[in-house]
Design a protein around this nucleic acid. Structure first.
Length: 454
DNA sequence: TTAGTCACTGCTAGCCGCCA
DNA sequence: TGGCGGCTAGCAGTGACTAA
């Protein structure tokens, strides 16, 4: 029998015991697990109308739950993490928040949350039974009929990660708890907003080779809405970043030449910014996909041509990630994976809360042509997913019928549909910052279609 | 061999949403 | 508003494993 990957939580539920109280009991009786179990039994289970044996068993299960959640050891002594929680017993919100962070990062909590979000995005009903299948597909096992996810959800709900109906996730609360806002990277804290966004835009390109500084500026301006000094970029932005060891910047002309500096990320930028960005995806995606995200876009485009459908499908998913990361969008869920479509297409959902909230559906297709049906299917999903933007990406061409249909939808509704074909992908691969040009072209096209008759 | 421990499995009361 | 059915989670049963 395979052991559960999710922690055992029977009788370790917030509706049965109080976390602060059991922490104090462990502090008092730690090292003598019999005394600890007696204390738990006397406090929570002695009034149960059952046998003495079962009362003891309930207390025993509470202890096992605390061990599984990494709070105490086999002797019921507080672990290092348990000690940390003990210091927070007078501040319940902080106590639950710290516990939730531990569950999310160390006990497959993020996998559970992402699995639920993916299932909701795919229109599946979330129950303990369907969840078991969903988690199994992500390599996380728990026994059939098991309530492990329920206990985990109850603790996460104490920190606000789950709200309202049972399986409703609050993604913004997760950001708060995990500190996922890249603005808060310690490494970037001392820089000006211009310097910070320049570094992030450069990091988002994923390129190690030198790129023209003006293209990174354009990407940063479009992505973050920050204005850069026109005449003094080196003085106001680049020199400080070079001094801090985050970029190299080479002048390409002598004298008073007007060509832009060639900038490239250093190992320090990769370690302090790029890797933490990828770390955020750990536990949410296939580890092989994470490895692909560390490679240049050109390699991913090559991988898509692989005969192995699994590899090609994974590369297709990586392509969607790469493009949306260029625009610093936040990954929400994968609605349709490549392994469900024989590597032919993937369907992901991203969000952004910059200035106004927007939700983007991105479909990547590894087929010769995007058809009207492909676009129609995505348009149909926007109502269900409450998204504002559809991004259709193909390694082939966009069909004329598909174009005409998208134009009609954009003219008649508030939806924006962005189409990127194989040629665009080639250009983006050569110079990642040119992604902005492709999106600007599509935005102007949409603006023309949506002209008001005033 | 046996008692103790661990962790999965089964049963069921009660909650909640849906529908007539 | 009440009946019904599905789902959750508390409680208990049980078998596997381990150490004495």
């Amino acid at each position: 029998m395979k052991r559960s990957d999710l922690p055992f939580g029977s009788e370790f539920s917030p509706s049965q015991i109080e976390l602060a109280r059991v922490l104090e009991m462990a502090d008092e009786h730690g090292g003598d697990w019999h005394a600890f179990e007696d204390a738990v039994r006397a406090t929570y289970f002695d009034n149960h109308k059952t046998t003495e044996y079962n009362r003891g068993k309930l207390a025993n299960n509470t202890k096992l739950g605390m061990i599984a959640y990494g709070i105490i050891d086999r002797e019921a002594a507080l672990t290092e993490f348990g000690q940390e929680l003990l210091l927070l017993t007078n501040d319940e919100p902080s106590l639950y928040e710290r516990f939730a962070k531990h569950i999310l990062l160390n006990l497959h909590g993020m996998t559970l949350v992402r699995c639920i979000q993916d299932m909701v995005a795919a229109g599946e009903v979330v129950t303990l039974t369907t969840l078991r299948e969903g988690l199994a597909a992500r390599g996380v096992h728990y026994p059939s009929g098991g309530k492990h996810p329920s206990m985990m959800r109850l603790w996460l709900a104490k920190a606000g990660v789950f709200v309202g109906s049972r399986w409703q996730v609050n993604p913004h609360r997760i950001e708060d708890i995990l500190g996922l806002n890249p603005d808060e990277f310690e490494a970037l804290a001392d820089f000006t907003p211009e310097q910070r966004t320049f570094l992030r835009a450069l990091a988002n390109t994923g390129e190690r080779d030198p790129q023209p500084a003006n293209k990174i500026v354009k990407l940063a301006t479009a992505t973050y809405g920050i204005k850069f000094p026109e005449k003094s970029l080196p003085k106001m932005v680049l020199h400080s970043l070079v001094e801090a060891g985050y970029i190299t910047a080479d002048k390409t002309t002598t004298g008073r030449g007007a060509k832009p500096f060639q900038v490239a990320p250093t190992d320090k930028l990769i370690a302090d910014v790029v890797e933490p960005l990828l770390e955020q995806l750990k536990g949410q995606t296939d580890p092989k996909l994470l490895a692909l995200l560390r490679t240049p876009l050109s390699d991913i485009l090559e991988e898509i041509k692989e005969k192995d459908r699994y590899k090609a499908g994974l590369a297709l998913e990586a392509l969607a990630f790469k493009i949306m990361r260029l625009l610093d969008m936040t990954y929400v869920a994968t609605r349709l994976r490549a392994n469900q479509t024989g590597g032919a297409e993937v369907d992901l959902v991203f969000e952004s809360a910059r200035l106004v909230f927007s939700r983007w559906q991105i479909q990547c297709k590894n087929t010769a042509r995007v058809s009207l049906d492909d676009v129609a299917k995505e348009v149909g999903l926007t109502h269900f997913l409450k998204s504002n933007v559809i991004v259709m990406v193909t390694t082939g061409d966009i069909g004329n019928e598909a174009r005409r249909y998208a134009n009609r939808i954009m003219a008649d509704s508030n939806l924006a549909i962005v189409m990127l074909d194989g040629g665009d992908l080639h250009n983006i691969s050569d110079s990642p910052a040119t992604v902005i040009r492709a999106f600007e072209r599509e935005a102007r096209h949409a603006m023309n279609l949506k002209k008001l008759d005033l």
